[in-house]
C-alpha cells in the first residue's frame, strides 16, 4: 500500500509538471501582446521593445518556461507587472480570503448533505427523501454564481442580514470576517451539497441491506444508532471521493463567486491578472490552484486508508 501511495505521489508530481507546461503554453499563446496591453495603444515602438525585453518576452519560449519553472522550484514565483510586488506575497495575502471561503463552503456542504442524504436513505420515499431529490435537481440546475445572486437578493437586499459583498479583512474581527464570507460560502456550498446529498443517499442505501446492519440491530441498537454508527462510516468512501472531485469545481466556482461578491481572494486575483495580461500572476495562480487540487486528491486517496481498514493491509476482502 505504501508503494502504491509513493507511485501515486510520483504520478501526481508528473501531472503537476505537465500542467505547468500547459499553463505556460496557454498563457504564451493568449492573443494580445502583454507589453502592448500594459502600455496602451499610444506607446512608441522603442518603449514597447524595451518593456518586452524587461519582461523577457524577447527570449525563446522554452527558455522562458525553464526560467519560470526553475524559479517556482526555488520558491521564487516572480514579480507582478501590474502590482509591482512579488507574486508569492500576493498569493499569500489573497489566500487569507480564499482558503477560509473554500473551507467554509466544504464544511457547509458536508453539514447540509450528509444528514440530508442519510435521512433520505433511511426513510426512502419519505418526505425528506422527496425534498432531497428536489434539492438535488435544483442544485444541479443552478450554477454557483446565479445562486450567489439569488442569495444576495434574499439575504442582503430583502432581509438585510448579511453584507452584499466586500470583505472587511481579518483585522476587522473574526466574526465580522466570517459574516462577510457566509453568503458566498453558502452560494458555493449549495450546488455542491445537492450533488453530495445524492451521493450520500445512494452510498447509504447500498449498505442498508448489509447483514452487519441487521447484526447491529440484533445487538439491541436502535435504528438510528445502527444507521449512524454502522451504516454511515461504511458509506463514506464514495462521499469523500465526491468531495475530492468537487474541490475542482469549488476552485472554479470561487473565481466566479469572488467576483460576484467582490472578495479580494485568489479567484479575483486570477480574474484581474487575466484582464490585465499580468501573465506571471496568471501562471502562478493557476499553477497554485492545480497543485491545490492535486494535494486534495492525494489526501482523499490517503483518507481511504483511514475510512476502510481493509485497504491498509492491501488484502482484498473475500
Amino acid at each position: 500500500m505504501i508503494i502504491l501511495m509513493i507511485r501515486r505521489l510520483v504520478g501526481l508530481l508528473l501531472t503537476l509538471l505537465a500542467v505547468s507546461a500547459l499553463i505556460f503554453l496557454v498563457m504564451a499563446l493568449l492573443p494580445g501582446d502583454p507589453a502592448a496591453i500594459m502600455l496602451g495603444t499610444s506607446a512608441s515602438a522603442d518603449t514597447l521593445a524595451a518593456l518586452r525585453q524587461q519582461l523577457g518576452l524577447d527570449q525563446p519560449l522554452l527558455l522562458r518556461y525553464l526560467q519560470w519553472l526553475g524559479g517556482v522550484l526555488q520558491g521564487d514565483l516572480g514579480r507582478s507587472h501590474t502590482y509591482g510586488v512579488p507574486v508569492a506575497g500576493l498569493i499569500t495575502e489573497r489566500l487569507a480570503v480564499t482558503l477560509p471561503l473554500a473551507a467554509m463552503a466544504i464544511l457547509l456542504s458536508v453539514l447540509i448533505a450528509v444528514p440530508l442524504g442519510v435521512t433520505a436513505a433511511a426513510k426512502r420515499n419519505g418526505l425528506v427523501d422527496l425534498a432531497a431529490t428536489l434539492f438535488a435537481q435544483a442544485g444541479i440546475a443552478v450554477p454557483a454564481f446565479w445562486m450567489g445572486l439569488l442569495l444576495i437578493l434574499l439575504f442582503s437586499m430583502q432581509l438585510g442580514w448579511t453584507p452584499a459583498g466586500g470583505f472587511p479583512g481579518w483585522h476587522a474581527g473574526f466574526f465580522a470576517a466570517l459574516h462577510a464570507l457566509l453568503l458566498p460560502a453558502l452560494a458555493l456550498a449549495l450546488p455542491q451539497a445537492s450533488v453530495l446529498t445524492r451521493v450520500t443517499r445512494t452510498a447509504v442505501l447500498d449498505v442498508l441491506d448489509e447483514d452487519f446492519l441487521r447484526a447491529a440491530r440484533a445487538k439491541g441498537l436502535s435504528r438510528r444508532a445502527a444507521l449512524w454508527r454502522h451504516a454511515v462510516p461504511n458509506a463514506m468512501v464514495p462521499v469523500v471521493t465526491m468531495l475530492g472531485l468537487q474541490f475542482t469545481f469549488l476552485v472554479a466556482g470561487a473565481v466566479l463567486i469572488e467576483n460576484v461578491f467582490n472578495l479580494p481572494g485568489l479567484g479575483r486575483l486570477a480574474y484581474q491578472a487575466l484582464s490585465q495580461r499580468d501573465i506571471i500572476v496568471m501562471q502562478d495562480v493557476v499553477l497554485f490552484f492545480a497543485a491545490l487540487v492535486i494535494v486534495v486528491n492525494f489526501s482523499v486517496d490517503l483518507s481511504y486508508l483511514w475510512l476502510d481498514p481493509r485497504l491498509r493491509s492491501g488484502k482484498a476482502f473475500s
Binding site: 447484526a215 475510512l307 476502510d308
Partner: peptide
Amino acid sequence: TAALNPAM
C-alpha cells in the same frame, strides 16, 4: 463475513 462491520 457479512455480519461483521468491516470498519470496526
